[in-house]
Nucleic acid binder design. Structure first.
Length: 951
RNA sequence: AGGCGCGUAGCUCAGUUGGUUAGAGCGCUACCUUGACACGGUAGAGGUCAGGAGUUCGAGUCUCCUCGUGCCUACCA
């Protein structure tokens, strides 16, 4: 039967029982590990017990500096996908690791209101009900979205709990929470007061389906095969003469207010100052000269439509041209389009081309590849549209000579006088990408024509047309006092509020001008783990806004805040993308999305986490492949069974009257100088692998850390140490109890350390086994609250090299046995010719006997001819067995080996006879090669002789 | 059009500043139902590191070119 070993919340040290206590429950674990049987239980326990909530340290409490991470807030509309799971796995590993290093560790979760996406979803729902946003009206619609959010907004948070994210749930936020909304409004008002927010008519990317402006970043460009049409515009006062312009969007010609040519273009010099007749509409428009025009593209003459193209808008500004919009907000032609009014833009294009052709004004139609912009949310082709929007001036200082938002954001990643960067990117090349963008940044359009979001706190006055921006809703115009004011209908870009999160989640704006306790304790955050796709959207905005507002918040002691204290985070780790097994980007439309929850249900969370971690080499995309997850499920099962073996022996020990002090279990594994070799070895090995894992995690080398713990647990611990332990776990009356007890104690300590090393990667399995190991009376409420083994950086423990020799002998004997066809169960004698002093064989006879099935070892000065030999630099070994060797196979093997040695030896001797090598290479390299060359000489002799013997 | 990245075993991927014999998992072959584990054990096979040139005593690693491939940025009508 399966017992549950849930710890009692009321555990105290006094209640800690010994492992061998008579009434302790038997450790009966099922033979195969079943993640489903334990994962939900622990997931709930971690949340219910609030194990990872962190209170704000009292100011001046002297607490260790906090490790703080802000979770990139998933959209309320979202479900957990593989990308999230990957991001969360990496973050959770780091967060668990840091916590186990003893730092107060806070990982702040929350969700984003996701303006456009959420509004779209709810509108779709309304459509299904035969209703619409317009029918409901703004207030009722917003209420409806809130209801929707109450219902569905928590899906992703539940999944986070299920996969074991150790976030601080007490700090969970939603970007439209009252306090955060208040902070957003404060930020807007301050920027407005500083003259950094302005309103104006500009060309923006307009989504005709969402019917809102969207930012440049929200436009996805797509190359497509299109056409380039050449259209003739007649020259006024010059009968029969044309100017031919080239365009990809003929429907916009209805809004043309000029034709531009390059001032130096000889072909058009005679047209300078002339006027043209716009076809179809008949408007009289000028020829203007502008250096922006590329002479070698198209015909060198460009139609200028200031209301429908950003470049044309700029030309229009330079030449004071009128801007005529010919489309409405749904991309249908409006009254300015004359006969084409009411037509959809593509229908209008068809009709216009048809009419032009009929009039002989269509000069040519050419194939042309161009990039069209599509709305990143709904895939509708974006229409550049002239409209009045709100902008943040990112290149303007608040005061003469002061920094700009962009300049601060650049300074944030620039080396200061002390050679120190306030903010670092990993992988490093992202810094360059970020800097390029920040250096060429345009003003940020922050208004959206949506209903769901933070409404812009500005009021328009009907009387004086002025704008009132205020912290409190005004009742009258601040300029003329008129009561006839109405609030701006636009809301803010979602990224405006999420860009403020690093300050707002910690209580900005401070009421008294001093940093809040949370800001003091947790700002700047330590690390941001996020994807490349939101580097500009979010990371850059957080840096701009965070730096901008925090420069005005003094340090706790009242001194001005230095640059490395105003940045929102000290490090940004940009993770890779998870692709499908064929390296394709996962997308709903392709139908290749892998649902992590489904995979988790089949393999267990730990196996999926381990898969992701083991492939998470910085900067390299992951092709998620289930075969690996299968492998890591096997790994979990292996550990489970190692635990079963260990617990079985604890039970046997108890029956034999051997008691292990549970307080000793958490000690780092150590072995006395006179302890058996494998004990000294595993203690040293645990120590060195711990150091290696810590080093790897410190450099975000997740794959390396994961592989180290995998090799250690499976290879070192299970394959070697556990097998040898079977010799030591002798509970018979004849055995020396203290020896057995020492062996069992070290086994338990090593296992306990290994569980802790593994726990950030496989939190569920390790939590379960750790509690069982402590028999339900663990020293902490969770393995996640214990200390991570540190190890020591360099350890040249002689036990490690001695054990390596022992392993080499055992492997050689096993291989010889196979060559000779010895039955698995048969024990055979071996002969050894030692070639080095102090070989660790005589003292470890029983290990060799057991692991290589050897009956006796004979040490000789020379080995008899006629039998196969395995030769190493330290020893030669022979297995004594009469059965005939497979001569052909053996010859083949030796021939290959000989070729390999010969090649290597040729290389080595060439190098060693090279004067410049001897002169320039480091001494250690030369010395190493000399030693190897001597070894090769010997190995070659032996191999040749062995081949001779076969004949 | 610019910029970045990748190409290593049948498959999926490691390989930190150039340094002796290029690694792992899966798959494959052979043997083993040994009292933790067949989601296992043991031993194997498998690579001219895409191709070419260069720098160097020494190149999977640095430089250039070619081929293949992926991504990002961009206001060429």
């Amino acid at each position: 039967m399966v017992k549950s070993y849930m710890p009692q919340p009321s555990n105290t040290a006094a209640e800690t029982a010994t492992l061998t206590e008579k009434n302790a429950p038997p450790r009966e674990l099922p033979k195969a590990y079943d993640p489903a049987a334990i994962e939900d239980r622990w997931a709930q326990y971690w949340v219910r017990e609030r194990l990872f909530d962190v209170a704000t340290p009292a100011p001046g409490s002297g607490a260790a500096p906090a490790f703080t991470v802000l979770l990139p807030p998933p959209n309320v509309t979202g479900n957990l996908h593989m990308g999230h799971m990957f991001e969360h796995t990496e973050t959770d590993i780091l967060v668990r690791w840091r916590r186990m290093l003893g730092q107060p560790t806070v990982w702040v979760p929350g969700t984003d209101h996701a303006g456009i996406t959420t509004q779209m979803l709810v509108e779709r729902q309304l459509t299904g009900e035969g209703s619409s946003r317009q029918q409901l009206g703004r207030e009722a619609f917003v209420k409806r979205v809130w209801q929707w959010r109450e219902h569905y907004g928590g899906a992703i948070l539940s999944s986070m709990k299920r996969i074991g994210d150790t976030v601080d749930w007490s700090r969970e936020y939603f970007t439209m929470d009252e306090n955060l909304s208040h902070a957003v409004r404060e930020a807007f008002v301050r920027l407005y007061e500083q003259g950094l927010i302005y309103r104006g008519a500009y060309i923006v990317n307009w989504c005709p389906r969402c019917q809102t402006a969207i930012s440049d970043l929200e436009v996805a460009h797509e190359e497509q095969q299109g056409k380039l049409w050449e259209i003739r515009y007649t020259v006024i006062d010059s009968p029969g003469e044309f100017v031919t312009v080239a365009t990809t969007r003929p429907e916009t010609m209805l809004g043309d207010t000029a034709v531009a040519v390059h001032p130096h273009d000889e072909r058009y010099k005679h047209l300078h100052g002339k006027r043209l007749r716009l076809p179809l509409i008949g408007r009289d428009i000028p020829v203007v000269l502008d250096e922006w025009v590329k002479m070698d593209f198209g015909t060198g003459a460009v139609k200028v439509t200031p209301a429908h193209d950003p470049n044309d808008f700029a030309i229009g500004q330079r030449h004071h041209l009128p801007a005529i919009s010919v489309m409405d907000e749904t991309a249908h032609m409006n009254a300015e389009a004359g006969p084409y009014q009411g037509l959809d833009r593509y229908e209008a294009r068809k009709r216009i081309l048809h009419d032009l052709e009929a009039q002989g004004l269509l000069a040519a139609t050419r194939d042309h590849v161009n990039a069209i912009g599509k709305c990143a949310r709904c895939n509708t082709v974006v229409e550049p549209r002239l409209s009045t929007q709100w902008f943040v001036a990112v290149n303007k200082p608040a005061r003469e000579g002061g920094p700009t938002m962009a300049s601060l954001a650049i300074a944030a990643v620039t080396v200061d006088a002390h050679g120190h960067k306030p903010l670092r990117f990993t992988p490093e090349n992202n810094e360059k990408i970020y800097l390029d963008w920040m250096t060429n940044i345009y003003d940020w359009c922050i208004s959206r024509q949506l209903w769901w979001g933070h409404r812009i706190p500005a009021w328009h006055c009907a009387a004086c047309q002025q704008i009132t921006v205020a912290r409190q809703d005004p009742t009258a115009c601040a300029h003329c006092g008129s009561k006839d004011i109405t609030q701006e209908t636009d809301v803010l870009d979602t990224w405006f509020s999420s860009g403020l999160l690093p300050v707002t989640v910690f209580g900005w704006p401070p009421a008294d001008g001093k940093p809040t306790p949370d800001l003091t304790a947790f700002y700047p955050t330590s690390l941001l783990v996020t994807g490349f796709d939101i580097l500009f959207f979010w990371v850059a905005r957080m840096i701009m806004l965070g730096c901008w507002f925090m420069q005005d918040v003094p340090m706790p002691d009242g001194t001005p805040r230095p640059i490395d204290e105003i940045v929102p985070f000290r490090e940004v780790y940009i993770h890779a993308l998870v692709r499908d097994a064929d390296r394709q980007k996962m997308s709903k439309t392709k139908g290749n999305v892998i649902d992590p929850v489904e995979i988790v249900n089949r393999y267990g969370t730990d196996a999926v986490r381990f898969t992701l971690a083991s492939m998470a080499s910085p900067g390299t995309d992951i092709a998620f492949n289930e075969a690996r997850t299968e492998g890591y499920r096997a790994f979990a099962n292996k550990i489970w069974n190692a635990a079963r073996f260990i617990f079985m022996n604890v039970d046997r020990a108890r029956e034999a009257g051997i008691e292990i002090d549970p307080t000793a279990l958490g000690e780092p594994p150590t072995a006395a100088d006179d302890a058996p070799l494998e004990m000294r070895w595993i203690a040293a090995r645990t120590n060195s692998v711990a150091a290696e894992i810590n080093a790897a995690l410190g450099e975000y080398r997740f794959h390396e850390a994961a592989n180290l713990v995998y090799q250690f647990f499976w290879g070192d611990f299970c394959d070697w140490y556990l097998e040898i332990s079977k010799l030591r776990l002798d509970f018979s009356d004849a055995a020396d109890k203290s020896t057995t007890k020492a062996a069992l104690t070290l086994l338990l300590q090593t296992f306990e350390s290994a569980l802790r090393l593994l726990s950030p990667f496989m939190p569920f399995l390790t939590e379960e086994l750790w509690h069982v190991l402590y028999n339900g009376n663990p020293p902490a409420k969770s393995i996640a609250l214990t200390r991570y083994p540190q190890g020591s950086a360099h350890s040249d423990d002689p036990a490690e090299s001695a054990f390596a020799l022992l392993q080499e002998l055992i492997v050689s004997v096993r291989a010889l046995r196979k060559d000779l066809g010895v039955e698995e169960k048969a024990a055979v004698p071996v002969r050894i010719k030692p070639l080095a002093p102090r070989l660790p064989f005589a003292q470890n006879l029983e290990i060799i006997q057991r692991l290589a099935r050897v009956s006796a070892i004979e040490t000789l000065d020379s080995l008899p001819d006629g039998m196969p030999v395995r030769a190493t630099p330290q020893f030669d070994v022979q297995v004594v067995y009469e059965k005939k060797v497979d001569t052909i196979a053996e010859r083949e093997r030796l021939t290959k080996e000989l070729a390999r040695y010969e090649k290597e030896q040729a290389n080595a001797s060439r190098q060693l006879s090279n004067e410049s090598f001897l002169g320039k290479a480091p001494a250690a390299v030369v010395e190493g090669l000399r030693r190897r060359a001597a070894e090769l000489e010997m190995l070659l002799d032996k191999t040749r002789k062995a081949l001779e013997d076969l004949k």
